[in-house]
C-alpha cells in the first residue's frame, strides 16, 4: 500500500505507526506525549484500523493506553471531528495521527467525552499549570 510505504519511509516525528504482520489494514501506533502538555513524557499506544471503504471512510482509531483526557472516552474512543462527520478522502493516516497529537496538546473541554476530565481541565490547578507553562488554550470548535 502506497500510504504504508510513505509512513515507513518518512515517519512523523514523535509518532510511530507500524502495520500488523497479519493484517495490512491494522496499525499499531505509538504517540509520544507532546512537549509542554500534561502528557509530556508519556507514551500512548493506539490502534488504527482502515475500513474496507478507506479512503472514502475514516479510519477507526482508539487509545489502548489509559489516558485522562476530556476528548477520550473510558474505552479509548476519540471525539475528533475528522474521524466522524468531517472526514475527507484527502486526509491520510499521518494527518489523522497529527490531529490526535494536537488534541493532546490542546484539549477541547467544550465538547467533552469524559466529563470528569473536562472538569479537571477547568479546575484551578490546571489553570495554574497553564499560566506557569505559558500555554495558550484554543477553545474554538
Amino acid at each position: 500500500m502506497l500510504e504504508t510505504q510513505h509512513l515507513l519511509a518518512e515517519p512523523v516525528p514523535a509518532i510511530r505507526a507500524m502495520p500488523d504482520e497479519n493484517n495490512a489494514c491494522y496499525f499499531h501506533v505509538c504517540i509520544a506525549g507532546p512537549q509542554d502538555s500534561p502528557f509530556e513524557g508519556g507514551s500512548f499506544k493506539l490502534e488504527l484500523f482502515l475500513p474496507e471503504e478507506y479512503p472514502m471512510a475514516a479510519p477507526k482509531v482508539r487509545f489502548m493506553t489509559k489516558i485522562y483526557h476530556p476528548n477520550v472516552e473510558k474505552l479509548g474512543r476519540i471525539c475528533l471531528d475528522i474521524l466522524k462527520d468531517k472526514w475527507s478522502p484527502a486526509l491520510q493516516i499521518h494527518t489523522v495521527l497529527l490531529s490526535i497529537q494536537a488534541l493532546l496538546s490542546a484539549p477541547n473541554p467544550d465538547d467533552p467525552s469524559a466529563n470528569d476530565a473536562a472538569q479537571w481541565l477547568y479546575s484551578h490547578r490546571y489553570l495554574d499549570w497553564i499560566q506557569e507553562h505559558n500555554v495558550v488554550q484554543d477553545r474554538r470548535n
Binding site: 518518512e10 512523523v12 507532546p34 475528522i82 484527502a90 486526509l91 494536537a102 484554543d138
Partner: peptide, 17 residues
C-alpha cells in the same frame, strides 16, 4: 514535502493538504 514536527503542530494550520 513538509512534515509538521511535534512542536510545530497547532490548530491554526489547516489539516487538509
Amino acid at each position: 514535502h513538509w512534515m509538521a514536527g511535534c512542536s510545530e503542530v497547532g490548530h491554526s494550520t489547516n489539516m487538509l493538504p
